[in-house]
Amino acid sequence: MKIFKKSDIILIFAVLFVAGIIFAISSLEKGPPVAHIIVGGEEYKAVNLVDIPEKQVFILETHPETIIVCEKGCAYFSSAGCPDKICVKTGRLTKKGDTAVCLPAGVVLTIEGGEYDAVTY
């Protein structure tokens, strides 16, 4: 059987195109980056990452336990009790759309709102 048929190439480019469009649309919205902590489907906390004076640590009573840190310009899982720790390995989230998830704990950390380059004051 042939490896690449015409329909394959079309499929590949179609998928890449769709991915690009989704990415472009999600990057459009402007606003200060806000970190949303969602636990069990409900929003637990929204933290504005632009005007945050110092580090904020959230210890979530989830099973397994997860700890989220919000500081100026970024948010991230600092530790989690799940076996894979994919959430922690995701690292720092800085711009809109950046997301880290701990499935066993049911926690989603995501950045919404666009990214200003800067705010003048």
């Binding site: 200060p32 504005n48 705010v119 004051y121």
Partner: peptide
């Protein structure tokens, strides 16, 4: 994109 800060807004609003 540069935002102009809203006076008196603690949440980084523009």
């Amino acid at each position: 994109t540069v935002g102009i800060k809203k006076p008196g807004s603690p949440g980084g609003e523009i």
